[in-house]
Nucleic acid binder design. Structure first.
Lengths: 256, 256
DNA sequence: TTCTTATTGATTGATATCCAATCCTGTGTT
DNA sequence: AACACAGGATTGGATATCAATCAATAAGAA
């Protein structure tokens, strides 16, 4: 019953990251205010939050739209992400204790089990979380927030991408990264991070016109449980027929 | 006549960075709405922007206050800043062309002249700008924004600090950094950045209760030119009698 | 027909007023 | 002195309203 605008901003963020609201989609104040059953002012505040986070773009007297990053933006975001993760890697290789390395290994192990048991959805989530855990071990909330924001923007980027991915050696990458860092082999570790992100961004192909398949009303419907808590994460699937290979995942490798 | 909330957020940011609004200072909606002659809602939106930027803190049903970062926050902010600047340094040492190095040298030269001519205020500004120019040369707007936000927060930190500074070898640091990077001596350069920030944060002494010397109304008065453009940067001076040595500057060295 | 211009509609930016929830404070009681 | 309660003040939000601007359509001229 409080901070409605923050709660709604969170829901919108979730919907964007789930690719239910695609880049370029109009976020009309009136429509959203009806969807969420709040006044326009609350929606406006939510949209301001989204814009500050880089997920929405507000054009004067034209309204808010889901951000549509350019190819240039994509490269810059991945550059920044690489820079941050390399920096964190350097810190961790110096400062992380055995418990930290153990936590990372354990995380990889959980993901390995998920993959082995064919639970792709869980493997996806764990793969995403690896980087978050990685940065959290730096024990720096400021860095965590910066990193989280960058990750959100990469997730948004994935709405714009048409490419065939495979799920080959993600775990190997993570495991190898841990191994290199723990041994203090910083340079190869940083090159691994860089190569990883580079290969991802190289595979990006921007579709210039992304057409909103769902209206905001349709897209947001699963998140509205009559003002109750979170919905149990609805399937963000698009039409399974076409680009079924382009699932959402932080760690994607491009088929060359 | 547009985007009032953003404009007001900018003014408030400026006032905070000028230390006219000190940490802990209450930012009452009614008071600010009277100061700026807008409705409370516009002020609310401005405060949301400030909070998203880490410069204000909104407590439910209690209002907004200028953020009062803890010592822990200070260390984390400087850690993040170090990480970012080190990363940018690494990128620049690889990628920056002669024109870029020339621009950096030219900037240092301008600051040197300002110092030589006793223009401390200008030297301050140029010293702050050096880091901004440095990051801008990475040609990455995302990194620029992240860095700018971190710099804003360090500036806020300086409101909380009681320490004696001197202006010794700031230029030497900058010049040395350029020299090391251009020669590809990355490691010493990164250590220089780290040492610089470390020495700064070590000198921090938190005053737990900072009392607002100026009411927001008084503090903001110089920025209001009857809705006209920017005021010509009013002197952010506190009372000159007491801690006159603790001027605002990005590059401060602690007297051991 | 086609291009240019004008009108109209829709949407945003912003204000004023009102109400509920909550916090702070001051006072009174035990 | 400690506690409880009531009242004031402030924030969070709803609603209604107006102005400014954009977009799309309709009207008119070449």
């Amino acid at each position: 019953m409080s901070n409605r605008s923050q709660a709604i901003a969170d829901i919108l963020t979730r919907a964007i990251l789930d690719h239910r609201l695609v880049p370029g989609c109009k976020l009309g104040e009136r429509e959203l205010s009806e969807v969420f059953d709040v006044s326009r002012i609350v929606i406006r505040q939510s949209l301001i939050r989204l814009a500050d986070d880089g997920l929405a773009q507000i054009e004067r007297n034209r309204g808010a739209f889901v951000a549509r990053p350019s190819m240039q933006d994509a490269m810059e975001i991945y550059d920044a992400l690489t820079l941050v993760e390399q920096g964190v890697a350097a810190q961790l290789s110096d400062r992380l204790g055995p418990a930290g390395w153990a936590e990372l290994r354990q995380h990889v192990e959980r993901q390995r089990k998920a993959v082995a048991s064919g639970n792709d959805a869980l493997a996806d989530v764990l793969g995403q979380e690896f980087h978050t855990v990685f940065v959290r071990l730096s024990r720096n909330k400021v860095m965590q927030e910066i990193h989280a924001q960058l990750v959100r923007r990469t997730t948004l980027l994935r709405s714009l991408i048409t490419a065939d991915f495979d799920y080959c050696n993600l775990l190997d990458d993570h495991a190898k990264l841990i191994e290199l860092l723990e041994k203090g082999r910083l340079k190869p570790a940083m090159e691994l991070i860089d190569a990883h992100h580079r290969s991802v961004v190289r595979g990006y192909i921007m579709d210039r016109q992304v057409f909103p398949e769902l209206t905001p009303r349709e897209a947001l419907e699963p998140y509205l449980d009559g003002k109750a808590g979170e919905p149990p994460k609805p399937a963000p699937r698009k039409k399974a027929g076409e680009n079924g290979g382009a699932r959402t995942h932080t760690h994607v490798h491009v088929v060359k």
